[in-house]
Write a protein that binds this DNA or RNA. Structure first.
Lengths: 313, 313
DNA sequence: GCACGATAGTTGACAAAGTCAACTATCGTG
DNA sequence: CACGATAGTTGACTTTGTCAACTATCGTGC
């Protein structure tokens, strides 16, 4: 892969983005001027609202505030009746910070204002743009801000326009990066998804996309076997490297199995490669068993293909 | 399109991102502590380094600084010999701000430090991640920061793993959004790119991707006509809505034409739709002429297909 | 059970960052 | 050439943030 995007040019656009975002956050926070709170105070309030009864130290750390500064802010809040400082249960040095009803009301008011602002900005975007935008935010959050994906916020949905391409792209670049396969694999995936759309029978077939905040994290297909009407084929199970370890693969396969049962299939088969060991664990856990292995040369590599089956009684 | 990504949830993740990025920029700017400059001073210096001889007012506006505050910063810079304030040519009230050699040296030093920092963060990412990251930055910059694409920074390159999928995705969601086509169009594109990879002859065929900072902005294919060896087909010309008006389409078509000439084709043909008027102007400008029109029903719509040709003498 | 270093939080003194309004000098227009 | 507008400066001020010294408590090792 020729490095048309060098580390240096990536760093340059990163810095440019940071400058622009500094400016942007500056204009956003200007709205605090019409408020009784400063930006720092607002951040503290928000922190108290989202984390139940934290110690002052924790708040100072997560927000990067000076302990002394925070102490003064909290005194002000206490005087205003927004916060109570309760000595911690097992440590008389520490205090647990709790919002009063009045404090909660203040947070609600701030939230409303901030939500309005965010809405106003996003309202100018088309749905397509908004999806791209959200996905971009999530990407940045995960790559440089160290944000973790919250498994409970992952949703499974059916395919939509643009999804087939995303599937081809993810699998194409993913397997090249991880296993060095050549682009004939990407072409194969493109053909599979084209066939899926062309022959799609909603009662007998389905595609699931796992996503969070518009970010495509994984997918799987269940299709009718071309020759055997009672058999379904599970195809193109994929979980993005960024989302591994969340049980997404299990969730996707479980979805396939229950759909297949509901559609009265008697069997599910799938074809996979011996090197994809992470996937095997998922198939095994779902009750599939390996029924056949065969070496072949594909995608520029010597591989061993495997057929797995699950009987649906 | 079911709104699994509502405006409200998009706004929520937007706000969460802003909070996280505030924190991130805070840690980034901590590095200014070991510097003789404050963050605001650094921003001013950078602004002076990138824009030749601006007025104080312009700097104050672009950075969102108070005029008085800026004036004091500039006085400090002048005293330190980093900046000279020259009365503007045609307005004796205004001053043009110019960095001295010493000022430029200071900027270089700051840049070096910031570059190191950015490099350190990006060095932990794989090339794939870095490309996604850069592209995400660009997306955010364009959608909410109002950044414009710099036409001179657009590069044309050959296809790489993951590109075919991106092409399918862009065209699939793009034409759905703009013209309401159904997903059989996405399937058609998937089949075309699959065929391209399968039959690819590098001497006779080519795919160009237009990108900036890893962000895919457009593409085009030139392939051998299946029946006529002397004829090339131009296919899948696409320019992302975000990148229209930059002459990207012209650039991509010109690339095709010159490749076709070099490969000794005698003719280029292409098939397009009557509603794609923006593309027609590009073809016309490149010397193509409309040779045939035919109504057809595809992608869920009644369309009029057009064949265009260019003779390459 | 107690000395001791570590930790949570507070406070005073201070510095840095940013705001506001009044002011000067100049400009452009009628 | 009067007059309102504009570029920039300055003094007085507030807000925001930092630092170190301080108290009270904790946990550990002896």
């Amino acid at each position: 892969m020729p490095a048309t995007l060098t580390l240096t040019s990536a760093a340059a656009s990163f810095r440019q983005f940071n400058r622009a975002y500094t400016r942007f956050l500056g204009t956003l926070s200007d709205s605090y001027l019409s408020t009784e709170f400063s930006l720092a105070e607002g951040r503290v309030l928000y922190e108290l609202a989202t984390h139940a009864g934290p110690q002052a130290k924790e708040v100072a750390e997560t927000l990067g505030l000076d302990a002394g500064y925070l102490s003064r802010i909290l005194s002000k809040f206490e005087k205003a009746g927004l916060v109570v400082r309760a000595t911690a249960a097992h440590d008389n040095r520490a205090t647990n910070l709790l919002l009063t009803a009045r404090g909660k009301a203040a947070v609600r008011k701030l939230n409303l204002r901030a939500d309005k602002q965010a809405h106003a900005i996003l309202a100018g975007l088309s749905e397509n743009q908004r999806a791209k935008f959200s996905s971009a935010l999530a990407t940045i959050g995960q790559t440089v801000l160290g944000q973790k994906i919250d498994p409970s916020s992952v949703i499974l949905r059916s395919h939509r326009p643009g999804d087939m391409g995303a599937i081809v792209s993810l699998e194409g670049s993913g397997y090249v990066e991880q296993f060095g396969w050549d682009n004939s694999f990407e072409a194969l995936v493109a053909r599979i998804v084209a066939d899926f759309i062309a022959a799609y029978d909603p009662d007998r077939e389905h595609c699931w996309i796992a996503e969070v905040d518009g970010q495509h994290l994984g997918h799987v297909f269940l299709v009718q076997h071309p020759d055997e009407p009672d058999t379904a084929k599970l195809r193109l199970l994929y979980v993005d490297p960024a989302a591994r370890g969340l049980g997404l693969g299990h969730k996707l396969v479980a979805e396939c199995v229950s759909f297949a049962r509901a559609a009265h299939y008697r069997k599910i088969t799938l074809w996979t490669q011996s090197i994809l060991t992470a996937a095997h664990r998922i198939y095994q856990a779902a009750g599939f068993r390996l029924v056949n292995e065969q070496p072949h040369h594909s995608f520029g590599k010597d591989l061993v293909g495997q057929t797995w089956e699950l009987d649906l009684l």
